[in-house]
Computed example of a mutant assay.
Amino acid sequence: MRDVTRRGLALSLLLSGVAGYVDAIGFIETGGLFVSFMSGNSTQAGVDVVERGLAASFLPLTLVAAFVIGVAAGALIGGQGRRRAWAITASGTAVALSSCLAALAPTGPARFWLLSFAMGALNTLYLSEGRARVPITYATGTLVSLGLSVAALLTGRSRTAWQRPLLLWGSLAGGAVVGATAHRLGSGLALLFAAIVLGIAAAGLAMHRGGRRQHASD
């Protein structure tokens, strides 16, 4: 995250907030599963196999599969990390469209798969050399970065490195609070709002990247 500009950081915080927002809605509707937190689904699938049988692990495992497919699709649509504005726009459009389709779909596995696909693709909006520079949906990686940054602070190596991972985690957690609140108004409407915000954010990111490229060529 160190090489992300302030404007890029602001956009990543917005995207992370939306990820927390969507994940909270998915958690409520699935009765305890996630559409962006795949570690939780993997653990739940393992427990279900033992406690309730293989069939019970179907939904958490397919959510993991949909998330991975979303990452792969986002990387392919976005040119596998070649940061052109059009590529980001294409990836962002795929994210927003799948979120919109999820909002319109009836509550059930199809909606949850679409949301997991969208959250997987969301992580490809900040790619560099085939790797995600900003962990949009996975708080564990962000908290590892935070812990390492705290160690750097205590050893005098960096006084400010902890700020960005803390902000990113806070955005994700805060988004979950907003999502749980918005769910009370109706999940379809709440998810449609998320799709609109994702579309706007992706457009903003594309404009930001396009502006940086144009500035670099001047």
Rank of each mutant, 00 (worst) to 15 (best):
M1T: 08
V4E: 13
R7W: 13
G17V: 01
A19C: 03
V22S: 11
D23V: 00
A24R: 06
E29T: 12
G32W: 11
F34T: 00
F37Q: 03
G40Q: 01
N41M: 09
S42G: 06
Q44G: 00
G53Q: 04
G53R: 05
A56H: 12
P60H: 02
V64S: 03
A66M: 05
V68C: 02
I69C: 14
I69K: 01
G70S: 04
A72L: 15
A73P: 11
A73R: 09
G74T: 04
L76E: 12
L76S: 10
G78R: 08
G79M: 12
G79D: 08
R82Y: 09
R83H: 14
R83I: 13
R84G: 13
W86D: 08
I88K: 00
T89N: 07
L101G: 07
A102R: 04
A105L: 08
T107Q: 02
G108Y: 11
R111T: 05
L115K: 03
A118V: 07
Y126M: 14
Y126V: 12
V134M: 03
I136L: 13
T137D: 00
A139V: 04
A139R: 00
T142I: 10
L143Y: 09
V144Y: 12
S145A: 13
A152D: 15
L154S: 04
S158D: 15
T160H: 09
Q163P: 00
L167E: 12
L167H: 10
L167I: 13
A173D: 01
A182L: 09
H183V: 03
H183G: 11
R184F: 07
S187L: 13
G188D: 07
G188T: 11
I196W: 04
L198N: 14
L205K: 05
M207E: 14
R209W: 09
G211L: 11
H215G: 06
